[in-house]
Design a protein around this nucleic acid. Structure first.
Length: 370
DNA sequence: AAGTCGGGGGG
DNA sequence: CCCCCAGACTT
């Protein structure tokens, strides 16, 4: 499959060395285009006919919107407003009505305003210029590049969600793609892979790969034309790449831990219940706050709570909260006779710590010593 | 750098 | 319930 023969600016034949599949940067586009020819999507509504106006409209509708969702809206929209002048002459009210249900209605307002800009400034046509396109409302760098590549075959890199996912995996780029530093890196990779010909097909191919094979969950690597060099597949990291968006800060919880040593230098450990955090592991006795810690101490131990020495807090992150542990240390402690070393409470010699299941942050605390 | 816009899909 | 999707724009 090649670019439409109806395009006004046919591209020249590529230099022979440009199509050699050698595993270098050039191999990326060569393999991708070969895959696109037999497995790409060639019957999307905006591809027939592929006019600048229809490409533009489709790119706007497809911002943060999946093909299946946008397609019926596209058909209805172009049936009502088949070209740029028709859009410009329409009332905003009608444009919004055609958009109704798609969401992100600023896209419709921008689309309408951009059409009127084009009537006033660009002789009623979409400008074939990256900067002029970006200057129009609703068109950013990637959308402008997609329009130029798809409508005219011009050589521009795109970087939408699909391409970000493909490139993050292919090059093993860690970090959330929304972060500016990561995004800069991905743009650079996108530029290096640009072929010299078939830019419309190449642009579509990237999006098809991301949408149909290199999906967010369960990518079909065995079918992928890029599997041989894909870092994420080779290293088994497709589930971790691209790095997901950092969530909101986890709720912070606090707890007091009581670090008790007896006269022999043994430490008092307590086995946690079989459910919940650190289930069945051995940890230091723990209380929700200092009042509870004081009560626990009074109930279990001889001696003076106030003589305990505060230690630097330990921070630990769980999947759903952060826990800050405030350790307090006593030496030469004895238990009350009625709360013996038995059941879930046990004096443990330092040399025996390795034989017990102890949470990592607690183990680090104990092994660092008082 | 973070928030906003939005309906739909998937885990 | 959350995150994500052919992003761009504002604060």
């Amino acid at each position: 499959m090649t670019d439409s023969p109806a395009l006004p600016h046919p591209e020249p034949d590529p230099p022979p060395e440009a199509v050699v599949v050698d595993g270098s940067a050039r191999g990326f586009s060569t393999r991708l285009l070969a895959w696109f020819d037999h497995s790409g999507r060639h019957d999307l509504p905006w591809q027939h006919p592929r006019t600048p106006y229809r490409v533009w409209l489709s790119e706007i509708m497809l911002q943060q919107t999946q093909v299946r969702t946008a397609a019926p809206y596209f058909e209805r929209f172009v049936a009502a407003l088949p070209d740029l002048p028709a859009l410009a002459e329409a009332e905003l009210e009608q444009v919004l009505a055609l958009w109704s249900g798609l969401g992100y209605y600023a896209r419709a307002r921008n689309l309408h305003a951009a059409a009127r800009h084009c009537m006033a400034l660009h002789d009623g046509e979409l400008p074939r210029d990256i900067d002029a396109l970006v200057a129009l409302p609703g068109i950013g760098r990637s959308t402008a590049a997609a329009i130029l590549a798809q409508a005219w075959g011009d050589r521009h890199a795109i970087l939408d969600g699909n391409v970000k996912r493909v490139l993050a995996r292919y090059h093993g780029v860690a970090g959330w793609p929304g972060a500016p530093a990561v995004e800069r890196s991905l743009w650079a990779f996108a530029e290096t892979h640009l072929p010299d010909t078939r830019l419309a097909d190449y642009t579509q191919a990237q999006m098809d790969l991301g949408a149909t094979l290199c999906t967010r969950t369960a990518p079909a690597c065995v079918l992928c034309p890029l599997q041989a060099e894909c870092i994420a597949r080779i290293e088994g990291r497709t589930a971790e790449l691209p790095t997901s968006k950092p969530g909101k800060p986890l709720p912070q919880r606090h707890a007091c831990v009581l670090w008790l040593e007896d006269a022999d230098g043994r430490v008092l450990l307590q086995q946690r219940p079989p459910t919940g955090i650190w289930s069945s592991l051995w940890t230091l006795p723990q209380a929700d706050d200092e009042v509870a810690a004081r009560a626990w101490f009074k109930h279990h131990c001889d001696g003076d709570f106030a003589r305990g020495i505060g230690k630097p807090p330990i921070s630990h992150v769980f999947s759903h909260f952060k826990l800050e542990l405030l350790p307090r240390y006593w030496r030469d402690v004895a238990l009350h006779p009625q709360v013996r070393d038995n059941g879930d409470l046990r004096w443990v010699a330092r040399a025996q710590l390795g034989a017990l299941g102890i949470p990592a942050p607690i183990r680090r605390l104990l092994e660092a010593g008082a």
